[in-house]
Design a binder for these strands. Structure first.
Lengths: 210, 210
DNA sequence: AAAATAATAATCGTATACGATTTATAACGT
DNA sequence: ACGTTATAAATCGTATACGATTATTATTTT
């Protein structure tokens, strides 16, 4: 029974991966017939997957038009970042980090610094944050965080490409790692929150320019 | 276009209302054909609605068996209550309350005290908490809170029927209202958190007995 | 040439059909 | 009477069909 492959789940994962790989952009409409041909399934599991992603705030359903990747906007940015920051802080405060986990964080932080390809940077950044929170034993929070970040990803792709952003963010990541190494999670959580505020400010400034 | 009625949305609201009215219990399987006959629609929008509710942690999809209201369990209770408490505290801290809002809170607190019908009590309790957080201007958080509470509702129906629970909870509600009247939201948020901890402890004790 | 209108094509949301799987019932064996 | 096996019925998940709506293209008007 656990081995049974349910197509809507596969379609959902496919779509999420497409997003992560930068293959879907804000404004895109997801063409059901085309996707059905690509995936060699009918539109039924595609629609079921898309209505799930709609429920997760990842895509938007426009009646009689279909499912789109919504354009980025200021209000949504505020709503998303406020919540993601809060949930990450919650997760971090409830986490424990062994040597291996700290090593993984350091490795990921280095990875971010070593790449200058924008998509890789964003994915690296988000993976770093995932590592910060991965040990929090609350599957509901983890799923919600994962979904929210699938949407947040579009903001980060759009606005977080330049060097100065990543330079500043990397310093904050260093501070988080240092606090974790000292077993000072409240301090780590505070810097993490500051990092998200920094990101939110950075993105909101650019959304105002638009 | 905003007036177009999308059946899956209607089905989803119908199912949520059925839950709130106590018509669906943990362990129940949702029979697609029967529901299609009752609602006079095909199974397609029903499945789409149910896959959305699955994504919201409200129902569980069992491959080849269908969609069920999952039984209550200890781990899920911990996960849900931890998150709901945290999100409500966040929402309350970011809220503002005018006279009308405070009046509505008082009215609702009184309503809870005046009824001894279990379902009404639970719904009244949840409405009180909704009023506490309704002014927080973050649609993402509001939707997530709403969904989580649809699932939390099953725990509260099952375990929160006796007088002593509501007596203690009502005292905490009074303290929250008093703090809000004094414009002391951090204090109100602290009591709110204590209220959720109280609820969580209360329910976990009973889940251990099971 | 640009704007408005009409016609056509594409797509959406839902209904229905159908093979696969699970559940319920009947028959058989101990 | 209870347990096991076989059969039938019910249900699930997906594919396909189809009317309604939207988008695109063609034609007409200004």
């Amino acid at each position: 029974m656990p081995n049974k492959v349910i197509l809507r789940n596969q379609v959902r994962e496919h779509l999420l991966k497409q997003m992560q790989q930068g293959a879907l952009d804000p404004g895109d409409r997801i063409n059901l017939a085309a996707l059905a041909r690509i995936l060699k399934v009918s539109v039924t599991p595609i629609r079921e997957a898309l209505t799930q992603l709609q429920q997760s705030h990842i895509v938007r359903a426009i009646p009689n038009c279909g499912f789109i990747i919504a354009e980025v906007n200021h209000e949504e940015a505020k709503n998303l970042y406020e919540l993601v920051a809060h949930l990450e802080v919650l997760a971090l405060e409830q986490s424990t980090f062994d040597e291996a986990a700290i090593e993984a964080l350091k490795k990921q932080r280095t990875l971010i610094a070593e790449t200058d390809e924008p998509l890789e940077r964003v994915n690296g950044y988000m993976e770093f944050h995932r590592l910060l929170t991965a040990n929090y034993n609350n599957s509901v929070v983890q799923q919600i965080l994962k979904d929210l970040k699938s949407r947040v990803f579009f903001y980060e792709r759009e606005f977080m490409s330049d060097d100065s952003f990543h330079y500043n963010s990397n310093e904050q990541h260093d501070a988080i790692i240092a606090a974790i190494e000292e077993d000072n999670l409240p301090s780590a959580a505070l810097v993490l929150k500051m990092n998200w505020i920094f990101v939110q400010d950075y993105i909101e400034k650019q959304l105002f320019i638009l």
